[in-house]
């Protein structure tokens, strides 16, 4: 159970497992897309979006954990904060990777830098702003890192690589980075925002995150249609639609499980029936 302001949320899956799932899944997805892309062409860029989905699930779990203490303001703020930190760290990581002639290290640098920014904000939130949320420091670090992986993962799904110059021309200059910003932010903030309340369950929230991540993947696929080529985009879109279907049916099954009763309301009554 977890309503906003009720303290630590009950978690069936411990956060440490989700952290491992998010970091490992996210980075494996990003690097797999990059290396397989070098070998087999851009078709494998969908792996980047799979990495982004792993990070989304992790990030949504971290948002759920910290927001269940009650932030005093809406849950959306933390999603925007996550992507704000994430975008700065992601651009820095990729650019520095290029600057030190080790572009391959870019995503890892980005995640480390994001964690530092998140930790600083978390410490200040508790010590200076007196928010007094016990998991604030850890959760802010996790949220920033997952936001960064989401951004890089979706950028890879769009452009096929995380090389700074290509990401710059294909994703940032074209303005698709704004789409990543909002779609990724939504994927992080929406799951808990939509499910919170006394009957909130971790698996239902995480299924929403999975479904939202798949929508972001479909959008990345649509961008890849023009940023790379039609076959690359189509593969990403089709896999995205399949994952979305899995996510949505999983979510709906859990809604039916958690609800007292699910009944159809039927169509609106006609005028004669009302009389």
């Amino acid at each position: 159970m977890s309503a906003g302001g009720s303290g630590e949320a009950h978690a069936a899956i411990p956060q440490s497992q989700l952290i491992a799932f998010g970091i490992v899944g996210g980075l494996v997805g990003i690097y797999a897309a990059y290396f397989l892309g070098n070998v087999a062409g851009g078709v494998f860029s969908f792996m980047g979006a799979l990495g982004a989905i792993c990070a989304t699930i992790w990030g949504a779990a971290a948002v759920r954990r910290v927001a269940s203490y009650g932030l005093g303001t809406g849950v959306p703020s933390i999603g925007m904060l996550a992507l704000g930190m994430g975008v700065v760290a992601a651009m820095f990581g990729l650019a520095v990777g290029k600057g030190i002639d080790m572009e391959i290290a870019g995503p890892v640098i980005a995640v480390v830098v994001a964690s530092i920014i998140g930790l600083v904000i978390g410490i200040f939130a508790n010590k200076v702003l007196n928010m007094n949320i016990p998991v604030m420091e850890q959760s802010m670090t996790e949220i920033a890192a997952s936001g960064t992986i989401v951004i890089i993962g979706l950028a890879v799904a769009m452009s096929g690589t995380f090389l700074f110059d290509i990401v710059l021309t294909e994703v940032i200059t074209t303005g698709y980075i704004a789409v990543i910003f909002i779609a990724g932010g939504m994927a992080l903030l929406h799951p808990f925002n939509a499910n919170l309340g006394p009957d909130e369950k971790q698996d239902r929230t995480l299924y929403t995150a999975f479904e939202k991540g798949s929508i972001a993947m479909i959008i990345a696929g649509i961008v890849a249609l023009s940023a790379q080529n039609a076959s690359v985009g189509l593969v990403t879109i089709l896999i995205g639609i399949f994952l979305w279907y899995l996510g949505f049916t999983g979510f709906y099954a859990r809604v039916k499980r958690d609800a007292f009763k699910v009944v159809g309301t039927g169509l609106l009554p006609s005028e004669e029936e009302l009389e």
């Binding site: 303001t73 703020s77 933390i78 925007m80 904060l81 992507l83 704000g84 930190m85 994430g86 975008v87 700065v88 651009m91 904000i121 200040f124 939130a125 702003l129 710059l168 940032i172 200059t173 074209t174 303005g175 980075i177 704004a178 910003f181």
Partner: peptide
């Protein structure tokens, strides 16, 4: 593009902190 997305990121961080 790079400067504007950086500015947006910095903006969101500084909008959430006071909130």
């Amino acid at each position: 593009g790079l400067a504007s997305i950086f500015a947006v990121g910095i903006f969101f961080m500084n909008a959430v902190i006071p909130s």
